[in-house]
Design a protein around this nucleic acid. Sequence first.
DNA 1: CAGTGAGCGAGCTTCCGCTTGACTT
Length: 774
Amino acid sequence: MFKNLVIVESPAKAKTIEKFLGKDYKVMSSYGHIRDLNKKKFSIDIDHGFAPIYEIPDDKKQLVAELKKAVKSAEIVWLASDEDREGEAIAWHLCEVLGLDPATTRRIVFHEITKNAIEEAISHPRAIDLNRVDAQQARRVLDRIVGFELSPVLWKKIKPALSAGRVQSVAVRLIVERENEIKAFRSESYYRVNATFLDKGGAPVKAELSRRISDKDSAVKLLDDCAHASFSVKSVNVRPVTKSPAPPFTTSTLQQEASRKLGFSVTQTMMVAQKLYEAGYITYMRTDSLNLSSLALGAIASEITGKLGERYLKTRQYHTHSKGAQEAHEAIRPTDISSSSISASIQEQRLYSLIWKRTIASQMSDAEIEKTTVEIQPSTRDEHFTATGEVINFDGFLKVYIEGNDDDADETDGDLLPAMTAGDTLEASAVTATERFTQQPPRYTEASLVKKMEELGIGRPSTYAPTISTIQARDYVEKGEKEGSERKYNVISLDGGNITDKVKKEVVGSEKGKLIPTDIGVVVNDFLTRYFPSILDYDFTARMEEKFDDIAEGNLAWNKEIAMFYELFHPDVDSALNMRLEHKVGERVLGVDPHGKQVSVKIGRYGPLVQIGDGDGDEKPQFASLLKGQSVSTITLEEALKLFEFPRNLGTYEGSEVTVAIGKYGPYIKHEGKFVSIPKDMAPAAITLEEAEELIKAKRSAESKRVVKTFDEDPEVQILNGPYGPYISCRKSNYKIPRTVTSPEALTIDECRKIMEEQNAAPKKSARKYTKKK
DNA sequence: CAGTGAGCGAGCTTCCGCTTGACTT
């Protein structure tokens, strides 16, 4: 028996605040939402005011039972879910399910987990805000309608099991449109001219010409002019600049910075952050707030003054400018700022250190920098050279943390310049014109896509990472694997009066980890933007958010707004479903084959394919899948016809046939009933018998390493090497080697038998379904 | 692991936002 029951969203939070509240309070967690629409059914009663039909999912039933029991034995129930739209709805669902009265149940909120904030919240309970709950219901119902009406259109018109939604479809659109910009981009070359001058004392001054030179002839001419010029200082300009620190982390900026500085994927960042949160090292990691609690501000201030001195402190409160931010939590910060490092896994330490530095820096003074610009005039030309130098007079926050940058800028200013005054003469020791190329727009990375999504207000901190996984799982987008390629460029130098011309090489255009649309992504996007332009509009979410705000204010009725939307949206769905097109969506006719039959490419049930014959006559068409790296939009007739040359017989090796074929998992070589995959960088159409033999040999040697140990006593028991490390195999059954075993190769047959027995005896835990791709 | 894609037919797939498990032979 206890007096008070407090329900929060997160179990880690429950643990923390239970400590603050004392023994009269029991704190439990709802683990997020406890009710939702059915996972598979539409669950919206369109004819009755779009009433949502909620249910408690199976994996929440036990939790709900426990909450019900706790409610019975409590005198007062406090609903302390987050102070945002979803939190309000969670509180309301709790009332509905637990049989509490929304009008009288005490609803409390706190933005920070401190004793003061919690006591303050307890002393100011309010009722549930039903208008805000309605805004959440509108959001939920809208997303269900869009997702569950649009996806089936794609199943019918393009390919089964595809999906569309308010957030994911716009994310895909961003990536497809960026790719289109890149395709339309034509790189141009120009010359950048750098020079090193020497002052009277022989000190070097690095400078760059104030304008770009468009072509090689002009560059040579300029260098020639410089060879016959004298140089003098035209002007010296010194001005102070200040730099301010970046605000503390939100989910989005943490994902970006962990990607730039630690090379983490957004999922990885969130997994590591979750660990840190559960261990009590950091505050909540799914947040859009820049706010730091007053307690935290005080602790950070004393940390800075104590370690670095008063001069480095500048207390700042940041305010978010993000669209749709709901600020239910604090910014992401260490819970104990006096710990600059923690003992945990390497990844956890690195992420923690990043958060610690960013948090400290956000409360530090501006850096004070003196920027010097010197203009250097050649006697033979109108344009001048510019040298810039920086002197840091006071480092401020730079002492601790510098924010990363997405574009790989190759500017280098910040050199120290020798003292110069106008009229000084300088001597040119070297002038170099380097060929450069205008840059195509950069492809999105996971992190830069999150940044863009946040700017547009689509998605929430809890969904950035899952959305990026979804669009990859649906094969709309994939991460680039191509390393960069070599490019040649000219370097023309003037050195000691002679002009020399060299060709250098650089590696550019690496696509590793960049998001690139697939054929399916492109076709789905073209289809959706054409037939559902309003949903795919970048401002759709922002406009809906305004409606939700009005609903939350009590100025609009949620189901009327949904009805208005539905009246416009649903007819578009119907007409898209029923339209008849001459060609399948995304189909492209390449021409005719030698027999005069039509050759076309399109998206089939299993992905992109080529088809010979249009199926009009009696003859059955022929099909072949496109290879990885080939695209519906760029494949030529010739390349398409080559795909029908498989399986290809290469000849014989060790007396048996060697054939090349295209399978479900890509191109492969078949020999004596064994399959050998062909690596991505080899063209299956051009592979030779010799190359195939090499691959077969390589596969055999890998195979021989697979067996770690066999036993004379029992040939059916083997220790094998698998992707997760060594394991025991016996008659098609596999057994995990316990973690306590340090050297599996030393296991005896008896030990193996014991391990197998134990695992056979152990009740097989209800095998969780693993949604494995392919 | 290693084609499958029409001409039968049924049944399945799918959204966004809150939360954490239990799981890797």
